[in-house]
């Protein structure tokens, strides 16, 4: 499984996350995102989840208003990539607790951290959800502790709670 890139766009075509595992210039990246999003957003629900874009196979899946889009090598297992996308969404869901698009907007860096525990060098890194979440939780704990040392406390979280409800 060699993932070239992962990115998330909303139904309106807004980029929510993007990570490139193959080397590409900023220009190429934004061009790819633009072209692939257009192709994906135009697809109908019953159609298959794969399209081809240049020398890349694009596997995508829609969750609520968000499209998870993964570009892989042509000889990769598309069906398994779908499972991977689902696994990623499950992890996000468990991490945020019933994840919604707003979570990913305000905590995009967390979404990156989760992804980094699942994929490295374009290869799948961990097949256990529990291991992924445990690693994230422990790292978050350190970060919270350090932020407390900076004297910032948990104000962020309070504000966020107010936002949500």
């Amino acid at each position: 499984m060699t993932i070239k890139y992962v990115f998330l766009v909303s139904r309106q075509g807004k980029l929510r996350l993007s990570k490139w595992y193959s080397t590409a210039t900023a220009k190429q990246i934004s061009k790819t995102i633009k072209e692939v999003s257009q192709l994906v957003l135009a697809r109908k629900p019953k159609q298959c989840n794969f399209i081809e874009h240049r020398d890349t196979k694009v596997v995508y899946r829609k969750y609520a208003s968000l499209y998870f889009i993964v570009g892989v090598e042509l000889d990769d297992n598309e069906l398994l990539i779908l499972e991977f996308i689902h696994r990623y969404v499950e992890c996000l869901d468990r991490y945020f607790g019933n994840v919604c698009e707003l979570d990913l907007i305000f905590h995009f860096q967390k979404a990156y951290f989760v992804l980094d525990e699942m994929v490295m060098a374009g290869e799948l890194q961990e097949s256990s959800k529990r291991t992924v979440l445990r690693a994230i939780a422990q790292q978050d704990e350190t970060e919270t502790k350090e932020n407390a040392e900076r004297g910032w406390g948990d104000i962020n979280d309070l504000v966020e709670l107010l936002d949500k409800y």
Partner: peptide
């Protein structure tokens, strides 16, 4: 600090190639 590194390295992977 770990939290600094976490954000710093994330920035590196996104802004640099």
């Amino acid at each position: 600090r770990f939290s600094d590194k976490r954000v710093g390295y994330l920035g590196i992977t996104l802004f640099l190639d």
